[in-house]
Amino acid sequence: MALTRIYIVAGELSGDILGAGVMRELKARHPGVAFRGIGGPRMLAEGMHSCFALETLSVMGLVEVVKHLPELLRVRRTLKADALAWQPDVMLGIDAPDFNLGLERALRSTGITTAHYVSPSVWAWRQGRVKGIARSVDAMLTLLPFEADFYREHRVPVAFVGHPLADEMPLENDRQAARKALGLTPEALTLAILPGSRASEIRFMGTTFLAAAEALCRRFEALQVVIPAASPARHEALAALLAEHPALAARITLVDGQSREAMVASDAVLLTSGTAALEAMLCHRAMLVAYKMAPATHWLAKRLVKTPWISLPNLIAGEAIVPELIQDAATPETIAESLSAMLDDADERAALEARFATMHAALQRGASARAVDAIEALAAGQSLNQASFNEEPP
């Protein structure tokens, strides 16, 4: 059936990127399709009529959410009324689960078909939320295969569509070209350090990572270290830390952005957890994940989180293929020891790089096209065929 109206609500810039990809694919298949909801610059460029600015939903932290709650509830009521008046074929919420799932539930109760793109971390903590998700959506569209497994176990219709980052990043990359682009010595053993994009991550891990790097530079005389700074503020904080480690000055290259290039250039990567670990996997590089947080946060996380690992490569693999050093285990000594073993074993690194390339290919599915496949099936009143949406790629 031809789709004519799609309601899309994205909550932040990452959702704007995903939404724009879905809109492009929908326009290619259904010329004349119209879009309303909330979107950012990329979605606006694709023809979105945005009822509110994207930043309206970009509220982070408990205190901030509570402060803005009356406004957020007003926005949700307005969007509900707008969608009911417009009567879209499908309403698609992209991420922002605390906002979107409530809107999706309200619209679904009136008969509008709803889907949610990007699963919340319900598989990791507060798993009881899946019951509310089941009442809110006709289908969940997931980026990762283990997420789809979780929803199938709980009998929630799901489509594993693949990860847009996997689509974006090539299955082959050139280590030597990346080193040349960053001004690094082409043949030297190289370590990339990604201490995180948040100020708190630099505060908790910066000194630890640099102390580990000092130990590694004593162990490997030709080792070169590249550190990408995620923003000008992070660059300033890292430069201040490096000033306290003058012995490292000649061995470290601090660059602005270019985290992906730094990872491709490396033989091994030291990083905090999060999307960076997934990117390192998609760059096919051996890595060590080390992470510290405030003691109270760690105490709470240990009691709430239900997964055996924190890094996405291990969660995707279903086994510990990436070493994780968390909280008290993340000392300069243990980090340096683990990385020394990694840097000493070229054969093990090569095997892991091949494993990551295979995992990359499994995630590289054309996420936008598969998301639209699911939207079309839902709009036509078809149940998602789990076999076709979750089979291994050719």
Rank of each mutant, 00 (worst) to 15 (best):
M1S: 14
L3E: 05
I6S: 09
I6G: 11
Y7H: 14
I8A: 00
G11C: 05
D16I: 00
G21W: 06
V22I: 14
M23W: 05
M23T: 07
G32H: 13
V33Q: 08
V33C: 13
V33R: 10
F35K: 07
F35N: 10
I38R: 02
R42K: 14
A45F: 05
G47W: 04
C51W: 04
F52H: 15
T56Q: 12
S58Q: 15
V63D: 13
V63T: 13
V65G: 04
L69G: 01
P70W: 03
P70S: 07
R74F: 03
V75N: 06
L79K: 12
A81D: 15
A83W: 00
Q87C: 12
V90S: 06
I94L: 04
D95H: 07
F99T: 07
G102P: 05
T114S: 01
P120F: 09
W123C: 01
W123Y: 07
R129L: 01
V137E: 00
M140N: 04
M140C: 01
L141V: 00
F146L: 10
Y151W: 07
R155M: 06
F160A: 03
V161R: 06
G162Y: 09
H163F: 06
L165G: 00
D167R: 10
E168G: 04
M169G: 03
M169C: 00
D174G: 06
D174N: 10
R175C: 07
A181W: 04
L182F: 09
L184G: 13
T185S: 11
T185K: 09
P186V: 13
P186T: 13
E187C: 09
L191D: 09
G196A: 11
I202T: 14
T208L: 05
E221M: 08
A222M: 05
L223N: 09
V225H: 13
P232F: 08
R234S: 13
E236Y: 08
L238Y: 10
L238H: 11
L242F: 10
E244K: 15
H245S: 11
A247I: 04
L248D: 09
A249V: 02
A249K: 09
A265H: 11
A265W: 11
S266K: 02
A268T: 14
T272K: 12
E279F: 00
A286D: 15
L288D: 06
A290D: 10
Y291K: 12
A294C: 03
V305Y: 08
V305S: 08
P308C: 03
S311H: 09
L315R: 06
L315T: 05
G318F: 12
V322C: 12
V322N: 08
P323V: 02
Q327N: 10
Q327I: 07
I335R: 06
A336E: 12
L339S: 07
S340I: 02
S340G: 15
M342Y: 04
D345M: 12
D347G: 07
E348M: 10
E348T: 14
A351P: 02
R355L: 13
F356I: 05
M359G: 09
A361H: 14
A371E: 05
A371K: 07
V372W: 08
V372T: 06
E376I: 14
A380S: 14
S383F: 03
A387H: 12
F389V: 00
E392D: 14
E392P: 04
